[in-house]
Design a protein around this nucleic acid. Structure first.
Lengths: 212, 212
DNA sequence: AATAAGTACGACCGGTCGTGCTTTTTTCGG
DNA sequence: CCGAAAAAAGCACGACCGGTCGTACTTATT
């Protein structure tokens, strides 16, 4: 079973196009992303690009999926090396902030940008973004719940509430880092959760010391 | 000194146009806002609209200013009736959440949407949005500082940090209310700050009782 | 009554958008 | 080496974009 070099070539341009589309979408938005722009950035023709997806909407949906995969690969997966509980929750939070601080994407956060862009535009794109957001929320809640189950957090912790606050600190970080002082934003996002967890967690050795 | 009926008419259409522009921009974005769209919504001609601003950018800047004025008028000003200190801080936060819950703007929050839209687009529009964001941040920090000065919050409170957290809870509320369950989002935003202030404020009578 | 200023209009320009249709180039199996 | 098949390119289309122009209507000034 050899690989068809023709479709292999197609796959390569497809993958390269989606990576560029994710990056471009953080600057111009998922709607503002244009075929001509993307084709120029890749050095291919507009129609050659268009042939891979039957419509712009199909390209947008594929771009969302690629962004999800990238987020999993660069943030979630590395953080899962931390042991379950508050350490893993903390690892995911800091991995996210580090991702923003590393300026991987030119426009900050793909999901923050596109979810605000599409929150009032009904359709398949919005639905897919909402689904991704829901999975992310469920993932954070699971992390908190595991910490509770392990006894690292009190049993009476409001799990969805704490997950909400974790995400809020992160969203605010990427927003402020783009318009105000980035380092201050990252520091507040980290300190916010660190102090919150320190106040809740009976075992202080599970969290980094850091500045008070 | 009589009022010039010509400029009065101009002022009226100007004001109506900016109100419509703020609302439209929350759906289509400040860049996606098109002259033709806005003209249709107002029932006037595109060129007649265009005569009021020399360029689209001028219209965008005027729209930002109008949104700032609307935010002041509908959220900040009413909340300033609450006495200084934690009660005023709480009033501003809840007024903001109520503003979102009332669905005043079809796309949620003008500033959240546009600031994410323009965070990677250098230029006068981004600069004006950043300036508005900076003033909003300074305002929140002033509210927190006043509560500290009045002794309603401990003297060792990290003022910018707490202001950051207040804003983060609000931003997250409007984001989640558009894609997931709105009531849950609003409740988390309110509870988050209420519990935080309850833990910090020695005088429990300053805050509403609410559900634990 | 004549002139000037402000507002609004319809027609139109060059450019870019997404999207089809046709052709050329690349790569495979026999 | 040769047709078949997939990928990429070329080309043209209708729609919409921001912006300009000349013009008509209304109001204020002289």
């Amino acid at each position: 079973m050899t690989i068809d070099g023709r479709v292999a070539r197609g796959e390569r341009t497809r993958a390269a196009a989606l990576d560029a589309a994710v990056a471009l979408a953080t600057e111009a938005g998922l709607h503002g992303l244009s075929l001509a722009q993307l084709a120029d950035a890749l050095g291919v023709s507009k129609s050659g690009l268009f042939a891979h997806w039957r419509s712009k909407e199909a390209l947008q949906l594929a771009t969302v999926d690629r962004a999800v995969a990238q987020f999993q690969e660069l943030i979630v997966h590395p953080a899962l090396r931390a042991p379950r509980g508050v350490r893993r929750l903390w690892a995911v939070h800091t991995a996210r902030i580090d991702f923003y601080a590393a300026r991987v994407l030119p426009g900050g956060c793909f999901f923050a940008n596109t979810e605000f862009e599409y929150n009032a535009r009904p359709g398949p794109v919005r639905d897919r973004l909402a689904a991704a957001f829901e999975r992310w929320t469920a993932f954070l809640e699971r992390l908190v719940q595991e910490a509770v189950d392990l006894g690292e957090l009190p049993a009476d912790v409001d799990v969805p509430q704490l997950a909400y606050e974790v995400d809020a600190l992160g969203i605010s970080a990427v927003m402020r880092s783009r318009l105000l002082d980035p380092d201050t934003a990252y520091r507040h996002a980290r300190q916010g959760l660190l102090h919150r967890l320190r106040a809740l967690c009976p075992d202080p050795t599970l969290l980094p010391e850091g500045p008070s």
